[in-house]
Computed example of a mutant assay.
Amino acid sequence: MTRAKRPAKRQDPSLPNENILIVGASGSGKSAFLRETVDFKQRRIIAWDPEEDYPLPRVRSLEAFLKLAKKSGFGPIRCALTVAPTEENFEQFSAIAFALAHAAAPMTIIADEIADVTRVSKASFHWGQLCRKVRKYGGRLCAITQRPQEADKTIMNQVEYTWCGALKTTASAKYMAAEMGITLEKLQSIQNIHRKQVQYWIRKGTDAATMETIKF
């Protein structure tokens, strides 16, 4: 049996948009939701993970991450990068992540607490490229933040799904109520019952947002 050849083109415009923005304060259920929706044992998954939150093999330098990426090419790679959360480091992570993406080799990319490493204005070059193009290059981008009003706006326009759990500040709640198309009162009606369940709002595209529950 001959092995099927990988398409020469890295991109496929027909691929669906699975990108998601996940917003919520600490304890709002972000990690629980990720565990329900992301297979951390899949062949190709990488994470920007300064706080070491994700169950993946870990490297602690960009040099080591780049070396691993070059060795992998478009093949298997499972890795979390833990380095100082600076804009420069995140930009390099984004460039490497995009270089790894291929339409014939699906990959999940997790970017944790993007408000620490992006600006409210237009996204930096490599992060912006990743946000805008990763879908047709076979990537699923999961961007996460506790402070959505402080993160760049490029990602807001490139996700198909927006997830919002409980928020601590009124500024964050007002911002996300507008993004979700619901009232501030509805957004703040979320109840988290410690160790039993968490509630969250989720919106697909321009559809109406719905409230859902994760039970433990």
Rank of each mutant, 00 (worst) to 15 (best):
A115S: 14
M107G: 00
G73M: 01
E36K: 06
A97T: 02
A101R: 00
L68C: 07
G75S: 10
T82G: 01
P85S: 04
D49T: 02
I110W: 00
A171C: 02
E63N: 06
R58Y: 08
D152K: 07
R78K: 09
K71H: 12
A84L: 11
L56Q: 06
E52Y: 11
T86V: 13
K136N: 14
V134P: 00
L68H: 11
A101K: 00
A111N: 02
S26I: 13
V38M: 08
L81Q: 03
D53C: 07
P85H: 02
R135E: 05
F65N: 05
A64P: 01
T118N: 02
D53N: 09
F74V: 07
S124M: 15
D39Q: 10
S172F: 02
R60P: 04
I114C: 09
G27A: 11
S61Y: 13
F98Y: 15
D53A: 09
C79G: 04
L141W: 00
K168N: 10
A47D: 12
T145D: 10
R132D: 11
A123T: 02
S121L: 14
K30G: 02
L68G: 01
I110S: 01
R135V: 12
N89R: 06
V59G: 03
Q149R: 12
I109Q: 04
A105L: 00
G73K: 04
Q129A: 10
V117I: 15
A69R: 09
A105D: 01
R35D: 12
G29L: 05
I45G: 04
I45E: 04
Q158F: 06
E52A: 14
L68R: 12
I77G: 01
A173W: 09
A171T: 09
T37I: 09
K133E: 13
G75H: 05
G75Q: 05
A99R: 13
T37K: 10
A101Y: 00
K122R: 15
C164A: 13
E63M: 08
T145Y: 09
L56A: 08
Q146R: 13
R60D: 14
L100E: 07
G29M: 07
L62D: 07
Q146W: 07
I46C: 03
A95N: 05
S124K: 13
A32R: 11
A171M: 10
V159D: 00
F33N: 00
S172A: 15
A171F: 11
T118M: 05
R147A: 07
A64Q: 12
V134T: 04
K30M: 04
S72A: 15
I110Y: 00
F98L: 15
P57K: 08
R58S: 06
H126W: 15
N89Q: 09
R132P: 03
E113T: 05
V83T: 04
I114D: 11
F65A: 03
N89Y: 07
G27T: 01
I144L: 12
A69Y: 13
T154N: 15
P148R: 04
S124V: 08
G29D: 05
E51Q: 11
H126G: 03
F125T: 11
P148Q: 08
G165K: 11
E51P: 01
